[in-house]
Design a binder for these strands. Structure first.
Lengths: 325, 325
DNA sequence: TTGAAAGCGGTACCAT
DNA sequence: ATGGTACCGCTTTCAA
C-alpha cells in the first residue's frame, strides 16, 4: 500500500495525496475529504523511510548514556522520551559504558541512523575529544545533559550546579559541627570532580582546613559496598559525616553504618526514589534531572527550528532534607 | 556526500560503490580497496533512509513498556539493547503508561516508524485486543517479554514462571510455619493475577486453607508506601509474613515494619539491585529478566531471519535467599 | 567485474 | 486546485 494506491482509489494524483498527507492548503476541501476517507479506510501510513529520504529527518533523537540500568540514566531517558513524544519525536538509546572508544562508537552509530539530534546524558561524555563533537555537531545538533564542557557551535548544555549543590550540603554539615566529612564516589573524574570542588568550597568558605577525606569505590556495585564497609569499619572514628556522589552509594553507607552499629549524618545525591526506600530516609541533593531533561528537549526543538538558543543553562541544586541528616 | 561522490572520487560507478558497501563478492579486490580507501578518507556513511527504503529495514527494534523510570523496565531495555547492539540493531523506546489506548497508540507510532520488530515488555500489554496484535504482527513481528497471552502467527512470548516462583516462595514461608502470608501488589490484574494463583497453589499443596490476604496499593509510589504502612499498623497481629509483587513494595514493607517496631519475614519479586540496598537485605524471587531479554532478542533475530521459533518460552523463577527471610 | 538505469515511496516544483 | 515528473540516495537487475 503506497501513495499511488491511495491516489488510484481516490481518483486523484499522487501529488494530491501527498498534499493531503502533509496538510498543504492548496487542496479543495472536497478532494481532501475524499482522500482522507480512503486513507482511513485502508489504514494507510506513509512510508517513513521515503519521507525520511525527502525531509532528511525521521523524527528520531539519539540518546547516549553510560548505563541504562542505572536509575539516574533511565530516569533521564524516561523524562526525555516523554517530552519528545509531545513533539512527535521518538528516542533511540544506546548504552556506551564508560570508555571513550565505545562512546565515540555510539555517536557514530547514531549518526549512521541519521538521527535528528543527539543527547548525551552524564558527565562521562566530557572526555570525548572536543574536535570530534565539533565535527558531529556540524551535521547533527548535540545537547548535553549534566555535562557542560563543549563550547561549540550547534552544541548546547543543560546542567545542574553540582558544585554549588555539594557546597551547600557540606556547608550545612559543617555548620552542624560535623567537620570531618567523608566524600564517597566511584571515581574522582567527571562529575565528581565538580562535587569535590564544592566540597573544598564549603571548607574554604567556613575557614576550616579541608580534611580531604575522599573514598573512591569503583563502578561495580557489590565491590563499592565492600569498599565502603571496610573503609568505615577502619576509619569511622575519624569521620563525622558522609556525603556520597549518588544515592546508591549513600544507601551502602547507611547499610555499612547499620552493620557497624554506628550512625553519622549521611547525604546522597540525585534525590532518586531510593531516598525513601531506605532507613533512615536519605537526605539528598536534588540535581533537578527532570527539569534538565525538559529544558534539554526545549533547546533541541529550538535548535532544530533554527532558533538561537542559550548555549549553557545551569540550574541550582536543592538540598532535600530527610532523616539521614 | 553520497554514493555518487564516492563513485566519482574512486573512478567507478555508483553501482560498484554500492557493491563494496554491501560486501558483494563481485568486485575486483583492487577496485574494492580503492573504493574503501575513498570511503575511509571521506568518512562517508551511506544514507540510512535510502538504504531503509530499499531494504525496508533500518535495523531498529521498537520497545514498548509502561514506565521506564521503573527499574524493572529500564533493566529490561538495557538488556535488550545490549543484545541487539551485537546484531547491529538499535532500539527505540516508548513509554505507554497503563492505559490500553496509549499502549495501542505506542504500537501505532512504532509501526509508523517502520521498525523491524516490536517488543512488548510487561504484563500490562496483555489487555490489548488480540485482533489488534494479530493485525500488527502481519507486517511486524512481535515478541512479548513477561507476557504470554497472544497465540498468534508472527508473535512469540518469552516469560518467567511467576506463578511457580510465587508458589515456591509462599511454600517456603508455610513450611517455616508462617501461615498468614500477606500478598502486597499494586493491583490484581495482569502479572499479579499469576502471582496470586501461585499464592493459592502453595496453600492448596500444603493443604492449608488460603487466608487470601491481599493488599493492593495502586501504582503511585508515595501512596503505596502510605497504604502499606496503614495496613500493617492495623493488621500486623494477623500477619505472619509478607510477600510483595515487586522489590520496591517489599522495601516499603520493611520500612513500615521498622517504623512499627516489628519484623516478619518478607519476600520481594524481581531480584533487583534494590535487594542489597535495604536493611535487612531482601529475599526475592528472581524472574530472570536478563535471561528473558537475551532469549527474546534471539527469537526476534530468528523470526526476522525467517526461521521458525518456539512460540512460547517459560523460564523457571528462582528464590534468592537473603536476610529478610 | 563493471556500468546503466529502473525502481523503492514519497515530496515539491513547474505547468496547466 | 490539480497533475506530471524530477529527484532524495541507494540497491539491484540486466547487459556488456
Amino acid at each position: 500500500m503506497n501513495i499511488y494506491d491511495i491516489a488510484a482509489k481516490s481518483g486523484v494524483s499522487p501529488a494530491t495525496v501527498s498534499r493531503v498527507i502533509n496538510g498543504n492548503r492548496h487542496v479543495r476541501a472536497e478532494t481532501r475529504a475524499k482522500v482522507l476517507q480512503v486513507i482511513r479506510d485502508t489504514g494507510f501510513q506513509p512510508n517513513a523511510f521515503a519521507q525520511g529520504l525527502n525531509f532528511n529527518s525521521i523524527g528520531m533523537v539519539g540518546v547516549l548514556c553510560s548505563d541504562f540500568a542505572d536509575s539516574f540514566y533511565s530516569r533521564a531517558v524516561a523524562s526525555l522520551e516523554s517530552h519528545l513524544r509531545v513533539g512527535n519525536m521518538n528516542v533511540t538509546v544506546i548504552c556506551t559504558g564508560y570508555s571513550v572508544e565505545r562512546q565515540i562508537e555510539g555517536i557514530r552509530k547514531l549518526k549512521a541512523k541519521n538521527v535528528d539530534a543527539i543527547v548525551l546524558i552524564g558527565a562521562a561524555y566530557s572526555e570525548i575529544p572536543e574536535s570530534y563533537i565539533a565535527e558531529v555537531a556540524q551535521e547533527t545538533p548535540v545537547v548535553t545533559v549534566t555535562t557542560a564542557v563543549f563550547d561549540l557551535p550547534n552544541v548546547c548544555a543543560v546542567c545542574c550546579d553540582e558544585r554549588g549543590g555539594t557546597k551547600t550540603a557540606i556547608a550545612e554539615l559543617l555548620a552542624a559541627g560535623h567537620q570531618n566529612v567523608l566524600f564517597v564516589c566511584e571515581h574522582t573524574g567527571n562529575s565528581n570532580s565538580f562535587k569535590l570542588r564544592g566540597y573544598e568550597d564549603a571548607y574554604e568558605e567556613a575557614n576550616i582546613p579541608s580534611p580531604k577525606l575522599v573514598l573512591t569505590t569503583g563502578n561495580s556495585q557489590p565491590e563499592a559496598e565492600a569498599v565502603i564497609y571496610r573503609h568505615l569499619k577502619d576509619h569511622i572514628a575519624e569521620i563525622d559525616a558522609v556525603m556520597a556522589g549518588n544515592d546508591v552509594l549513600a544507601a551502602y553507607v547507611l547499610k555499612a553504618m547499620h552493620r557497624l552499629g554506628c550512625m553519622r549524618p549521611v547525604i546522597g545525591f540525585n534525590n532518586s526514589t531510593l531516598t525513601t526506600m531506605v532507613i533512615p530516609e536519605l537526605t539528598s541533593v536534588d540535581n533537578k534531572l527532570e527539569d534538565l531533561c525538559e529544558i534539554a528537549v526545549q533547546r533541541l526543538i529550538d535548535i532544530l527550528g533554527q532558533k538561537t538558543v542559550q548555549k549553557k543553562t545551569v540550574l541550582p541544586a536543592e538540598l532535600i532534607r530527610r532523616e539521614s541528616f
